[in-house]
């Protein structure tokens, strides 16, 4: 069943067309890759899907709802989680609070209940805390629950960010360059990790990545874009052989390396 269906998506910034006429169809449960040279418009696509930009044209259909033009927090509540290219954790808040806060959309109590401290308030705060700790436990982060992210190593921060995205119980997880800035040892950990998340959380993943090792190892289906246009799509094996992809990445002389 199709989970995310993007049709004729276009985004213009003034005179610049960042994304043009994009079509994308993600089946439920798949693991997809989105690649392309720098400035190809990959993050722009993520920003449109997560509601940060309103597309100029086209529709984004997620799980039966048209979501373009919806506010980001609504989109997240519908079931799209994401991470960022440059980690955007709340650095002066504990890891536990970071996880807690991304459940802000279903707190289960009304505006006045924090002031009145009703039974329902305590019940839900307890539920949120337990769920957060459980999630941290799954990611083996329970020991740093009360640390501040700014004091943690980069690789751990990445993991916390993924955990935070998952705390909102998304059906679709968008990973924006999860391997950026990681050492090669960390990268192979990350590959196992993402595969494990995909299998255990029953989730669809769409990722942007520059490290081919990650993409080729993980993704079942890859879409390549350049200058906002799709230039190729297919399985990893097909993409590796595609002359246009090689041209976009390596220039015209690229055949030598293919």
């Amino acid at each position: 069943m199709s989970l995310l269906k993007i049709t004729d998506l276009t985004q213009r910034f003034g005179g610049l067309t960042a994304v043009s006429d994009l079509q994308l169809n993600l089946e439920e449960g798949g693991l997809y890759g989105l690649i392309g040279p720098n400035g190809a418009g990959k993050t722009t696509i993520f920003n449109m899907v997560s509601g940060f930009y309103t597309p100029t044209e086209g529709t984004i259909n997620f799980d039966g709802n048209v979501i373009n033009g919806k506010k980001p927090h609504t989109v997240t509540a519908l079931g799209i989680g994401r991470t960022f290219q440059n980690i955007r954790l709340w650095h002066d808040m504990t890891v536990l609070d970071n996880i807690r806060l991304s459940q802000h959309y279903h707190l289960g109590y009304s505006v006045f209940e924090p002031f009145l401290r009703t039974k329902n308030y305590f019940k839900n705060e307890k539920r949120i805390e337990e769920k957060s700790m459980e999630l941290l436990g799954v990611f083996n982060l329970q020991d740093i629950a009360h640390e501040y992210p700014k004091n943690l190593p980069y690789g751990i921060q990445r993991r916390v960010e993924i955990a935070r995205a998952l705390a909102a119980e998304p059906k679709l997880l968008l990973l924006d360059e999860p391997a950026a800035g990681l050492s090669s040892a960390d990268v192979s950990d990350l590959i196992d990790h993402i595969r494990w998340i995909h299998d255990n959380f029953d989730i669809t993943i769409l990722m942007i990545e520059h490290q081919m090792e990650v993409i080729m190892n993980l993704c079942q289906y890859i879409k390549v874009i350049d200058f906002g246009k799709t230039i190729a799509e297919g399985t990893p094996a097909e993409i590796q052989k595609n002359p246009q992809v090689i041209k976009a990445y390596l220039g015209d002389e690229g055949e030598v390396y293919a």
Partner: peptide, 18 residues
């Protein structure tokens, strides 16, 4: 704590469902 999240990173807050 949603408002503390706004102070530290408003974009992240909005995208993380606040």
């Amino acid at each position: 704590k949603g408002i503390i999240a706004i102070k530290q990173d408003e974009v992240a807050a909005e995208i993380m469902s606040v």
